[in-house]
Design a protein around this nucleic acid. Structure first.
Lengths: 329, 329
DNA sequence: CTGAAAGCGCTTACAG
DNA sequence: CTGAAAGCGCTTACAG
């Protein structure tokens, strides 16, 4: 492995000068610069980033913490993050918590020890230890998806998105709407989306029936199972629509409904959230809400870069969304 | 930021001893160890990985080079890689070439300068400069998806998978089969899958018609467009089935066929490759081939770990596949 | 069982 | 415009 010393020797200058030439810092004679660059070219020399990072305290690496590597939402966000970061010469150090809160905290500290310049967390829950850890590592930090106190957070407008979706169903004539949510550990998805649903239902005189309220775990299977439970529990008094808080659960619900011979949307309307590619190609195509995940990733990266440049950034950002009306309603 | 020196001072030992205690290397009295560990706990000390890496020449980071961050195939592979690596305390440094060959090479060198311990490349093409670069960086290296000369490569069995698929169509009575492939720059997908198709068609007396041969670019849209072209070009003599070399293109083709009022599979059978989640939920569900991408990722990671331990590993690995018969045939 | 010293490959005041 | 020297935070022979 060639080092800066090798280049210096071959160019007949000190390594100080080589460093200056490479980083465009301080004066270097045109002559020396040319000699150095030529040798750099020839040897394919690349500075050792560990040494550089040790010295400068900057690594050019951003840590990204994901709840799950294999969901479309995560992938889109990471894609957006990477697009912006790569352009600025940053790389992503990727970690996957597999939805384990312990790991979330562990990885924040690990990333710190790996000298990342900043961290972007796709957050799925909010708890004191997490907040505490974030404060302690004292690194440029950005959360996406949950509103973390005292942390710069990009949040989807879950309340209004959910309210719009519910309103839309009501205005299409549905007053009996089943709901498939998730655990309240996830404030954004588990609490806010449900709260908006309940608020709108109440305001508009919809019927909320606890037999029609299910709790899934984000998976397609859980959507299927919850739909089954709801239908079995509801007896003669059946909902005419089902609102699942994620596309995957909505698609699971559709599977069960189709199996049971329900026509969608005639016998039962279905809506989800997420605008997954599945939602587009499933049959009938699923009405859903697009959260522009990729854009969220881009924005997160841009904000983090701003922080790295010591620019002041606001603490809270609300992301926009878009209702996509399709054939399932 | 607390360093090993801080710990040493507070524990009244030298940093040498702290290092030994932390790494379980060499002798440390039980007493000293306890004192040290207690302080490590209290301070939440984590060793600076840049310093460690500079000194030991190992970073605990594996570079992963993806052609596209946002495809299900990539995601599944990365997921498999990560699962194995995380267990061993390694992290992934992620790069996305956006299908740009220049970047492929650039990133290999970049990852080297970032002191990764090894590299896994999801390869999409084979060319001399690439092979040369891999040889030059001289790092534990693993390719997935293409057979790179002199590089440990995990390849899907594209030839036989494609042959099986073609055979299956023929045995279902299809002798006129349209084919939507991709550029021959990609030997695995662009050449081998097509070659197997042609070989089987020839052997079994199927009709190969150049009007029925399209070339897409992996996207759903391109599947749609190629299907359109094929149908328009074929006039009265129409195929009864279409084989697209990826699920996404197959789904694009299905979209066009459905728009034109074709019944699937009665008027036209459709098959793809990839076992994407889309293939399962699209309607009718798509017959396809599962390449077990996650398992490929796991195996790649395991092989790389073996290399890091200086174990000898074979140079070529062929992965298995599975035909999934669904309603589109 | 323990510590002083050297060194990994860089950058950056400082002096000239 | 250039270089000698210090130092970033670790690990590892080496000596005791």
């Amino acid at each position: 492995m060639t080092t800066i010393n090798d280049i210096a020797k071959r160019a007949n200058v000190s390594r100080t000068t080589v460093s200056r030439a490479l980083n465009n810092s301080g004066y270097v004679s045109e002559e020396a610069r040319k000699r150095i660059m030529k040798i750099v070219e020839e040897t394919g020399y690349m500075p050792n980033q560990s040494a550089k990072s040790l010295r400068t305290k900057r690594s050019g690496v951003i840590g990204v913490i994901l709840p799950r590597l294999s969901t479309e939402t995560s992938t889109r966000v990471v894609n957006g993050i990477n697009e912006v970061l790569a352009k600025e010469g940053f790389q992503i150090l990727l970690t996957d918590t597999e939805l384990d809160r312990k790991k979330e905290i562990e990885y924040i500290r690990l990333l710190k020890s790996r000298h990342v310049d900043g961290i972007i967390l796709l957050a799925t829950n909010v708890n004191d230890e997490l907040i505490q850890t974030i404060r302690n590592v004292d690194l440029p930090f950005l959360a996406i998806g949950q509103d973390l106190p005292e942390v710069t957070s990009l949040v989807y407008d879950d309340y209004h998105a959910s309210a719009d979706l519910t309103n839309m169903l009501i205005h299409k004539g549905h007053h009996k709407i089943a709901f498939i949510g998730v655990s309240r550990d996830d404030p954004s998805v588990g609490i806010r989306r449900e709260q908006a649903f309940r608020d709108v239902m109440e305001r508009e005189g919809g019927e909320i029936n606890e037999h029609w309220m299910g709790t899934g775990d984000f998976s397609i299977d859980s959507g299927y199972e919850e739909m089954k439970k709801i239908l079995r529990a509801s007896g003669k008094n059946r909902p005419s629509a089902v609102y699942a808080v994620t596309d995957r659960m909505a698609i699971g619900a559709m599977e069960y409904l189709k199996e049971q011979g329900y026509r969608i949307p005639e016998d039962m309307a279905v809506v989800g959230i997420g605008a997954s590619s599945l939602s587009q190609y499933v049959s009938p195509s699923l009405t859903t809400i697009d959260y522009f995940n990729k854009k969220a990733g881009q924005q997160a990266a841009e904000l983090l870069l701003a922080k790295l440049k010591n620019e002041k950034v606001d603490q809270k950002f609300e992301l926009t969304y878009r209702l996509i009306l399709r054939d399932s309603v």
